[in-house]
Design a binder for these strands. Structure first.
Lengths: 105, 105
DNA sequence: GGCTACACATAGACTGACTACATGTAGCCA
DNA sequence: TGGCTACATGTAGTCAGTCTATGTGTAGCC
């Protein structure tokens, strides 16, 4: 998949993958790979800054924990993050309807 | 619709709207509005540079004509533009499948 | 004479995802 | 014990593509 087609949808992906569970950054990347059958292989330099941005926006919170000697920052959705996710899903449906309509069935 | 979600899909839209017909820049903008029920209202500063980019890429050709005193640059797809459109459509299906899959049904 | 719609175009800013780099631990294997 | 791989987080700088703002000019209406 061309890289830049993702642009504007990264937030939605990150929120969706955290829906109903807590994950740390590295696990988020793996979860996205898994859910997309390997199609989404996001570089760390893309994901980590995005997570911090979402946290600053109040959609995520995080805490540090240590698992077998390794430090992890575990993220989970806030209530406003859940609302944002719902909004992103709606927007996604509109987006695909519009573009799909122009591209033709 | 958030503006930047379009990013990466503009080429596909322009190629699709020119599929099987010739249009000039201004008419392309109107055609996109029409096909999207007004959702896509692209500024000229977005469309004209994109058309020239696609022409440089060999996917479009253009010729000048004059209609009731106004100069128009009319674009149409080249053969490789048609192939590019087919590729863009395939990519679009993959893209929506992948992202849609992650976002959840 | 002024306004609106038509029609093309460029310069520059801005944004968001990318590449490349930096750091460090745990566990395996030779 | 030394090196490799997987795990894990993070920053700096780049780059592409779309946007905003601006500019030019014609036709037709009122």
């Amino acid at each position: 998949m061309k890289a830049d087609t993702l642009r504007g949808h990264l937030d939605a992906l990150l929120l969706a993958v955290l829906d109903g569970r807590k994950l740390h950054g590295y696990a988020i990347i793996e979860a996205l790979q898994l859910r997309s059958d390997g199609a989404l292989d996001l570089p760390t330099g893309t994901v980590y800054p995005a997570l911090r941005r979402l946290e600053r926006a109040g959609w995520l919170t995080s805490e540090w924990d240590v698992v077998s000697g390794r430090k992890r920052r575990t993220y989970h959705l806030t209530r406003s993050g859940e609302q944002a996710l719902a909004a992103e899903r709606t927007e996604w449906r509109e987006f695909t309807t519009i573009i799909g309509g122009v591209l033709g069935a």
